[in-house]
Design a protein around this nucleic acid. Structure first.
Length: 575
DNA sequence: GCCGTTTTCGGCCCGACTGTTTTCAGTCG
C-alpha cells in the first residue's frame, strides 16, 4: 500500500496538534506544520523520493530529524512517535481545536483540569457548568462552546466552499460595500484571490474615509447570521450560509501592504517577511518600515520591490518555490483567459449535452474561439446515450457539413471514448482514426486497485488514436475521492508516448489539480484546459480551469489550446 | 525542529479583538 503525500502530511499535522496541546515549544510545533505543508505542496511523490534514496533534508523546512521520521512514515505507514504521544494526549483532543475559540492552550487546560478527552466529554462538562470553573474560562466561553458544538452536530459550518460558490457570495457583498459612502476600494483577498479550488472564509479589504460607518453597515448586511467580532479596523461576521467573512479597513497608503498581507498565503507572507528582516525592514499590513519610516505600502509592487523581488501573481503565493523562482528571475509567465483559442471538450444533444452542434458552435464563436471539439460520450455510457459507431459517423458527416459553412472557426470531430475495465476502448480504431482528436476517460469500474487502474490507463494510451486523457483522477471536490491511480506514472507515459492530459474546468472537478499541473509542467507534459461543457453557459467554466492552471505555474506554451488549430493538429499527431 | 552574508547557538512574522482579567493571555488570521 503506497503512502501518499497527503498521508505523510496528515501524520505530521497530527503530531503538531498534539505536541501543541501538550505545550511543546512553539517553534518545534511550527516545524512539523511547515514540513506537512512542504510535503502536501510537493509536485512529486514522497514515497518515490524515499525509494530513489533522495535526500529529504534538501527540502525546505525538513532537516535531519524530520527526514528520518518521514522515511519511517513512508516505510511503515505510521510513526512511533505519534503513537507514543497519543498515550498521554488522546488523539481526539486535536479535533477539539476545530471549535472556534479553542486553541491548543485551552484544550490542554481542559484536558488537564477536567480530564476532557472527547467532544462528548466537552459537551457534558459545558452543560454541567464545569468549564467556567476553570481559570481563564468564563460563562461566555462556556456558552460559545455549546453553540459551536450545536453547529457541528447539525453538520453546519467549517466546510470549505468551492471557488465558484464563494464567487456567488462575494460579488454581491463587494457591490454592497462599494456602495457605502466614503468607500474608495473594496476588494477580496485571501485564498479567494489566490483562486484556490475551495475557500474557507473570505477576507475583504476596504479603503474608506469613514471606517466606523463601514463596520456598522458591514455587520448590518442582510445576509449576516451572527457577528463574531467588531472593531474599528477589523470585524468578522458569519453569513447565513455559514461562510465567515473578515473585513479590514485600511488607509490608502497601506493598501498594497494590507492586500499582500491578507492575500497570503501565510507561508508566503512569512517567507517575504523574513526577506524583509534580512534587510532590516519590518513588514506588516500597514507597510514596509525601516525603523519608524514607512518605505512602501501603497501597492504590492512596491512592497516586493523592497525585498528585491518582482511582482508575484496571487495564484503562485503558496511558498512552493515562487520566491526562489522570483529571485532567479524564473517566474512563469502565467496563462490567461485571453490566451485560450478553443475548447477541447464539449457535449451536445447527441449524448448528454443540452444544445445542438450548431448552437454550441455559435456559442464558442461568440467567445472568440477558433475551434470547439465535440466530444460526446461513447456507447458504454448508456445513461448519457453514448454514441456507437453508426451514430458517431452520422455526427461526423453533420460536423463536416456545418464546418463548410463556417468561416474562421471549426468544430473538431472528436469523442470522449470510454476506457473499458481492461484498458481497451469503447469504439473501434477504424472510426476513431477518422476523428480530429480523441479524448479518453474513465466512467466505470472506478474502484480498481491502484495497480490495475494505472495499468488500465497505460494500456489505453498504447492505442495510437487517443490524445487527451480527461479528468484523470475522477475526483469531485468535497464529494468523491480521486481514483486510486499512479498519476505520476501516467504522466511519464503520456509524455513518452505523445499523449496529453486535461485540466477539466468544471468547478467541481478541476482535475488535474494545481499540484499535478505543476508536476506536468516540471516534466514538460502539456495539458489541455477544457470545460467539458454540457450547456452553452458551461463554456464559461474556462476561467476556473485557467485559474487552476495558473496555480500550477502553467504558461501559454504549457497549454495545448492556446494554439491555433493548425499548430495543435501537428502536436496531436502521434508517432 | 530548522537554519545560517550579523549566528552551529539562539533566534524563529506580526497585529487585532475577545474574554477574562485588572494588565494580558489566548486565539485567529
Amino acid at each position: 500500500m503506497p503512502v501518499h503525500n497527503s498521508d505523510v502530511a496528515d501524520i505530521l499535522d497530527r503530531v503538531a496538534d498534539l505536541l501543541d496541546i501538550q505545550g511543546a515549544n512553539q517553534f518545534r510545533v511550527r516545524a512539523y506544520r511547515t514540513a506537512s505543508r512542504t510535503i502536501s505542496g510537493l509536485s512529486k511523490s514522497i514515497s518515490e523520493m524515499v525509494e530513489n534514496g533522495e535526500e529529504l533534508n534538501k527540502l525546505p523546512g525538513i532537516g535531519k530529524d524530520l527526514a528520518v521520521k518521514i522515511r519511517e512514515i513512508v516505510e511503515t505507514g505510521t510513526l512511533r512517535q505519534l503513537e507514543e504521544i497519543e498515550k498521554t494526549v488522546p488523539a481526539e483532543l486535536a479535533d477539539l481545536m476545530d471549535i472556534g475559540g479553542l486553541g491548543p492552550k485551552r484544550v490542554g487546560q481542559l484536558h488537564k483540569k477536567l480530564h476532557i478527552e472527547t467532544l462528548k466529554g466537552l459537551e457534558k462538562a459545558a452543560r454541567e457548568g464545569k468549564i467556567s470553573t476553570v481559570k481563564g474560562f468564563g460563562k461566555k466561553t462556556e456558552e460559545n462552546i455549546l453553540d459551536e458544538i450545536g453547529r457541528i452536530q447539525k453538520g453546519e459550518g467549517a466546510g470549505r466552499l468551492k471557488l465558484v460558490v464563494a464567487e456567488e457570495i462575494t460579488k454581491p457583498l463587494l457591490e454592497y460595500l462599494r456602495d457605502i459612502k466614503g468607500v474608495k476600494i473594496a476588494e477580496a483577498a485571501g485564498s479567494y484571490r489566490r483562486k484556490k479550488e475551495t475557500v474557507g472564509d473570505l477576507d475583504i479589504l476596504v479603503v474608506c474615509s469613514e471606517g466606523e460607518r463601514v463596520m456598522d453597515e458591514f455587520v448590518d448586511y442582510e445576509d449576516v447570521d451572527r457577528v463574531l467580532s467588531k472593531g474599528s479596523t477589523r470585524s468578522s461576521i458569519v453569513l447565513r450560509s455559514e461562510f465567515q467573512v473578515d473585513l479590514r479597513v485600511v488607509e490608502e497608503e497601506s493598501y498594497g501592504a494590507a492586500l499582500h498581507y491578507f492575500t497570503g498565503s501565510k507561508e508566503h507572507n512569512v517567507a517575504v517577511r523574513k526577506l524583509g528582516q534580512k534587510r532590516k525592514l519590518k513588514i506588516n499590513e500597514y507597510g514596509v518600515f525601516n525603523g519608524e519610516k514607512r518605505v512602501a505600502g501603497r501597492s504590492e509592487e512596491e512592497l516586493y520591490e523592497q525585498v528585491e523581488l518582482p511582482y508575484i501573481e496571487p495564484e503562485l503565493r503558496e511558498n512552493r518555490g515562487e520566491i526562489e523562482a522570483a529571485q532567479e528571475g524564473a517566474l512563469p509567465d502565467l496563462v490567461t483567459l485571453d490566451d485560450i483559442r478553443g475548447d477541447l471538450q464539449s457535449h451536445t444533444k447527441y449524448s448528454d449535452g443540452n444544445y445542438t452542434l450548431k448552437e454550441m458552435a455559435e456559442a464558442a464563436q461568440e467567445r472568440g474561439y477558433e475551434y470547439l471539439a465535440v466530444t460526446d460520450h461513447s456507447r458504454r455510457v448508456t445513461m448519457a446515450r453514448g454514441l456507437d459507431e453508426r451514430r458517431l459517423r452520422e455526427q461526423i458527416d453533420k460536423i463536416e457539413g456545418i464546418n463548410e459553412k463556417l468561416k474562421g472557426f471549426r468544430l473538431l470531430k472528436s469523442i470522449e471514448v470510454d476506457i473499458l475495465e481492461d484498458g481497451s476502448l469503447d469504439l473501434p480504431d477504424s472510426v476513431l482514426k477518422e476523428l480530429d482528436l480523441v479524448v479518453f476517460s474513465i466512467h466505470y469500474n472506478t474502484n480498481l486497485s491502484r495497480k490495475k487502474q494505472t495499468k488500465r490507463v497505460l494500456r489505453a494510451m498504447e492505442n495510437r488514436s487517443v490524445n487527451i486523457f480527461s479528468h484523470p483522477t475522477g475526483r469531485i471536490i468535497g464529494k468523491r475521492e480521486p481514483y486510486d491511480i499512479d498519476i505520476a506514472k501516467v504522466m511519464k507515459e503520456a509524455l513518452d508516448s505523445g499523449c496529453f492530459m486535461e485540466v477539466n474546468a468544471q468547478p467541481e472537478r478541476l482535475d488535474l489539480n494545481d499540484v499535478y499541473c505543476k508536476r506536468a509542467r516540471d516534466i514538460g507534459l502539456k495539458l489541455a484546459i477544457s470545460t467539458d461543457a454540457h450547456n452553452i453557459t458551461d463554456l464559461d467554466f474556462m476561467k476556473w480551469g485557467v485559474a487552476q492552471a495558473r496555480r500550477g505555474w502553467l504558461g501559454p506554451d504549457d497549454v495545448l489550446n492556446t494554439r491555433s488549430w493548425k499548430e495543435l493538429e501537428k502536436l496531436l499527431k502521434r508517432k
